[in-house]
């Protein structure tokens, strides 16, 4: 290991030799800056080209800079990606959160209990829950800001199972009302659904936990 002190000094206190541009020369500065920016963007574009498939990033070679594009309209491919995303989410919940409470849940389960978490950007929301006698359910809804009257829907699927709840209705005409009736005979477990609007854009998520 190094033990003796080094006698370094400021870069500006030395004169540059031939080969390198002199410190402070405007032309040299301009050239260095232009060269830096050009090199940097070229490396960036190469990086995107090499890595786009693995990274899942769309290349954008406009050197004028990126534009803040809105996400494109949902196509079939996008819808398939969304389905894949939901499946991944369910798998993840299956292994990563087997015993963790759902967001917004507080305390244990109670008969006909319900819980709705609101975040800073979540509009006022009511949750109406109907369940068969003896069935305990807990519901959490997270919803982004959506326009009044937005048509929202979700299909809630059992995490790690095959049961589906298609009895969720979301009414946004006056505030947001989420009504959910648990069909009799639904198996216990965790359920999850992504809330989408009429253009299949993700607007939130709904989680349900059933227990007898």
């Amino acid at each position: 290991m190094r033990t003796s002190a080094l006698a370094f000094r400021s870069a500006s206190s030395s004169g540059a030799r031939n080969g390198g541009p002199r410190d402070g020369a405007p032309e040299a500065t301009k050239r260095a800056v232009e060269s830096a920016v050009d090199s940097a963007y070229r490396v960036y574009e190469d990086y995107l080209r090499w890595g786009q498939q693995a990274a899942g990033i769309r290349p954008q070679t406009n050197r004028e800079g990126p534009t803040m594009k809105q996400p494109p309209d949902v196509t079939t491919a996008m819808f398939q990606m969304m389905r894949m995303w939901q499946d991944m989410t369910q798998k993840w919940m299956g292994f990563a959160m087997p015993f963790a409470p759902f967001p917004g849940m507080s305390g244990g389960l109670g008969g006909h209990s319900q819980a709705a978490e609101t975040t800073a950007s979540t509009r006022a929301m009511e949750v109406e829950l109907k369940a068969a006698p003896g069935q305990r359910a807990q519901v959490n809804v997270q919803l982004q800001q959506v326009g009044r009257g937005a048509r929202l829907s979700t299909v809630v699927e059992q995490v790690g199972g095959t049961a589906t709840m298609d009895t969720v209705r979301i009414d946004t005409r006056a505030g947001s009302m989420v009504s959910l009736s648990i069909p009799p005979g639904m198996p216990d477990g965790k359920y999850y659904g992504t809330i989408v609007d009429d253009r299949n854009r993700e607007c939130g998520a709904l989680t349900v936990r059933l227990e007898r």
């Binding site: 030799r17 002199r22 800056v33």
Partner: peptide, 20 residues
């Protein structure tokens, strides 16, 4: 590095990137 202004060059290079 000082003699060839490599440090100054790097500083200007960083300035270019910061501007971008």
């Amino acid at each position: 590095m000082l003699s060839y202004d490599s440090v100054g060059y790097a500083q200007r290079f960083a300035q270019g990137l910061a501007g971008a």
